[in-house]
Design a binder for these strands. Structure first.
Lengths: 141, 141
DNA sequence: TTAAAAACCTACTAATTTGGTAGAGTATTA
DNA sequence: TAATACTCTACCAAATTAGTAGGTTTTTAA
């Protein structure tokens, strides 16, 4: 399960990507419109800035703004920044690999083959979806 | 990420499924062979028993044993028991659905469509893999 | 019939993560 | 120069995770 932090981050970025202009958007505006705690969102957007996804401007007329095209930001890259590993086990993670302390040998681990399969099928989606895809409103009818 | 509880549970069940006989297996034997804390494993196997996957026998010659064929136990069902939801968000979970408190409307949520897609691709694998599949040793060469 | 074996049960615990809040500091602009 | 709005430091409570300790009950076999 994704944490609220990740969920809020994705929603906030989608909010910004949906706007036609790239003018700075207030934290407080996003927080209100998306029902997110403002203080919590501050932390999240700051992290996204420090990770190179957002720029910011202080003072009146300030706020956060996207510094890359939504089409160029994969959901996988965002989840990795906000959440961490996408794989179900650290020992099959591509970006956050960690050795299992209980496994003698990764080659013979009964779980790793399956978990690699799950990882790859998830990545196939998340690496190919971008922020731009999230801005397409999901028609329900 | 799966918790250690889930990981240990899956490994313990695989261990039992690999044996040709269905005689009771000691917690302590599994714990030792799989490098799992015995006390922690006690909790896990008890839960699997209460969920209908294992039987147990007390006293000398006792232990835990599978009460279903490995072919009939999907990995998805085990993860749901041990871990909980498989989906990335509660609002798109089939078995552990919960409404999002921050979403006005699920139909228009920017994330839900994508998260349903991820869920379905993961389930396609996990619903079709069984304990029997985990017993096939993964040839590395 | 009694001792050992082994699951079962209750109760704790420490460390980490999660999801926040409070308030002061700093840069910018009108 | 005052208001605005991001930034930083410092807390905090609750939940979760991954255990541990120790006793109870049931069963088997000598």
């Amino acid at each position: 399960m994704l944490s609220k932090k990740t969920k809020y981050g994705l929603k906030a970025l989608t909010y910004m990507a949906k706007k036609e202009s790239r003018d700075p958007v207030l934290i407080s505006k996003i927080a209100k419109d998306e029902n997110i705690s403002k203080k919590f969102l501050e932390i999240i957007l700051l992290q996204l800035k420090n990770s190179g996804f957002l720029g910011s401007k202080k003072g009146k007329g300030g706020g956060y703004y996207l510094i890359r095209e939504p089409e160029d930001i994969t959901i996988a890259s965002l989840i990795r920044i906000l959440e961490g590993p996408i794989a179900m086990l650290p020992c099959v993670s591509l970006n956050f690999y960690e050795k299992c302390d209980d496994c003698k040998d990764e080659e013979t681990c009964s779980l790793s083959k399956l978990m690699i399969e799950v990882r790859d099928s998830t990545l196939k989606i998340l690496e190919n979806k971008t922020l731009a895809d999230l801005t397409q409103s999901t028609l329900s009818a």
